[in-house]
Design a protein around this nucleic acid. Sequence first.
DNA 1: TCCTAAACGAGACGGTACGTCGTGTCTTCTG
DNA 2: CAGAAGACACGACGTACCGTCTCGTTTAGGA
Lengths: 202, 202, 202, 202
Amino acid sequence: MTSPESTGKPGGSASRGRPRSEETRLKIMRATSDLLRESGMPALTIEAVAARAGVGKPTIYRYWANANELAMAALMETAPAKPASGTSDDALGRVRAILYRISETFSHATGRYVASMLAASHEDSEVSKAFRSHFIRARREEVAAELNTARKVGLIRKDAEIDLALDMLFGAVFYHLLMNQAAMDTAYMDNMFKAVMRGLEP
Amino acid sequence: MTSPESTGKPGGSASRGRPRSEETRLKIMRATSDLLRESGMPALTIEAVAARAGVGKPTIYRYWANANELAMAALMETAPAKPASGTSDDALGRVRAILYRISETFSHATGRYVASMLAASHEDSEVSKAFRSHFIRARREEVAAELNTARKVGLIRKDAEIDLALDMLFGAVFYHLLMNQAAMDTAYMDNMFKAVMRGLEP
Amino acid sequence: MTSPESTGKPGGSASRGRPRSEETRLKIMRATSDLLRESGMPALTIEAVAARAGVGKPTIYRYWANANELAMAALMETAPAKPASGTSDDALGRVRAILYRISETFSHATGRYVASMLAASHEDSEVSKAFRSHFIRARREEVAAELNTARKVGLIRKDAEIDLALDMLFGAVFYHLLMNQAAMDTAYMDNMFKAVMRGLEP
Amino acid sequence: MTSPESTGKPGGSASRGRPRSEETRLKIMRATSDLLRESGMPALTIEAVAARAGVGKPTIYRYWANANELAMAALMETAPAKPASGTSDDALGRVRAILYRISETFSHATGRYVASMLAASHEDSEVSKAFRSHFIRARREEVAAELNTARKVGLIRKDAEIDLALDMLFGAVFYHLLMNQAAMDTAYMDNMFKAVMRGLEP
DNA sequence: TCCTAAACGAGACGGTACGTCGTGTCTTCTG
DNA sequence: CAGAAGACACGACGTACCGTCTCGTTTAGGA
């Protein structure tokens, strides 16, 4: 999933030669995460990763095209999309929980990098797409599912535009993060959530 | 306003030596904008700017600390916060107009860079703050003023939380830009606006 | 012999990584000599050599520490210690021939640089030592051998101090060069030689 | 004598404007000597001298053309050609004393710089000539005078070539310095002197 | 069981840009 | 007006990484 070059090419010569070592990939990922955590993106040079991982530079280039992709890959492995723990029993409560979690995740050091990279990555490389999907699309669909449930149950209007609601919820969270460099506090989040819901309620 | 080091400072030794040349500063700004427009951020090296502007590298470093600050300064001079033209006569209409304008501005090439840089700039350098202020705070306050007017006139609830509304409006616009790499279309924007307003109306 | 870092070193890790390219070294030497010949020491910048040789600057620094060492290395390769051609059949005649040759060598453009560098180099780097050895020690020992022969044959005193004679012979030649910026003329050289010999003869 | 541009132009406009300050010149000389002593030639930049002397760079350039000339000027003021103290009463003894002194002078740190600069300076600027004259020609003529005296008194041959003898004496001293980076020891010097004299004695 | 092709470490290579330093010239203000 | 202060265009410095290459050395398949 992570490595950009699909390994199994059944057609052709069917993978001759020595296969890529999973251990090597792990060493690289580990070194990358460590460097990111300790010194941030600007210090994340291929050179440094190679030295730290005890790996040749070409080996890294075999897997990823540049430092950015490398960072994305590492962040995806390091910060897995953990499911919302301690779920409430009503759909809207669960939505709120998810938003809380997101707000917190992205307010921490590493999360900040993820946010920057999400905003800055224009290219549509494989890794870039995977990254977006991993960190946004996935959570977005999580919330979308809950809202659909809520709609079915009648908690929100039948003709409520889910997509719009998602833009507003996520938008507010991220914009607040961007502006204030900190997670939303509970009260503010609740207000925001209520305001959006007011626009959706029957 | 733009140059990071205020020139005046009558306190101290009252500006000894040859004063900095405004013309030089302009040449640098011009070269920077040109390079940004033609080839984008990755091509914006101090080296290239110096060559293009016919200026020594140290001169650039005298004014700005790195390529990022340089870019921000240039973008601020180049893309001035033009006031909303063709203003409607009702406050909410004007808000919508402003949001449209923002959405369009940031969907164009240069605007995309501005957005990325806004999201990516962690440091709180002087220039960085000015940049945020120039591109966001200013527009935000423009809208805030309109919403306050609307509140006074009774178009929205007396206890409506303006700040929250601003987060939602701007958040939705930027988040949409980020996700879809394009400006909101008219209909979508109208829906969004209506939804937020529904949360605020009396 | 010339390259400062001996390549062999069988002890240790036995030359890992891509080996240094002899061709590259040659390109650098060639460019250096050319620049020296055409424009002299002040024009011998690492930058210029790199450009001319079609080589990266770091590559040059991998081999030599600074422009001076680079120049020395190139001069050693370019101006090889050619043996005295047309040797006479008596030892003292051969000595005189060698001195002539030295006087001429160091009175030409490149030779002047060599002389300056010999006089100016204080440090005792590897290259610096090799340089001295190449241009002085070697010739000196050539002459020393002849004088020893002469002593055996009885042309000069048994207790003649060869080292002293060498200092006087070479000293006079170089000092004259230094003062007059030109090679000794034949007559003057003969006189000098005779005077020194008078101090040594039986 | 030292400053290349003669200050007192009595003819013409009779020194218009503020006259050059001797104090300024002295500050520059002092700073130059100090820097030379403390950190050597490579550290002797116009920039550093200006800063240390509390003087503007243009002021330095008004007096000297480059760092080399500046150094020469300072060395000439700092290391004055002190006359041979404790003179013996015979001419050859005095010659030997002078040579001793030279050998010692040029074996010390600053002297080494002087020697290098003597050897390396190709250009024939005003200062360069003065420098040579100050450090060599003067001593040379000192010795020449003694040798002429000796010739008159009959200590050396009537037809002895004084110039040649000077080349040999000074040559041996400087060459030895160059090769051994140290002053001649007494015994060696005596031997050398005797050997040259043997070539000259009646 | 060999053969062979790819992965791997190491590091040299041609480059590009960095940020700094020094040069020598200039411009402005102060004494 | 000389002189200090320092901005300026220029150019070289030595360093850091880039991404590619060439080595010698594993490490598995497929022959």
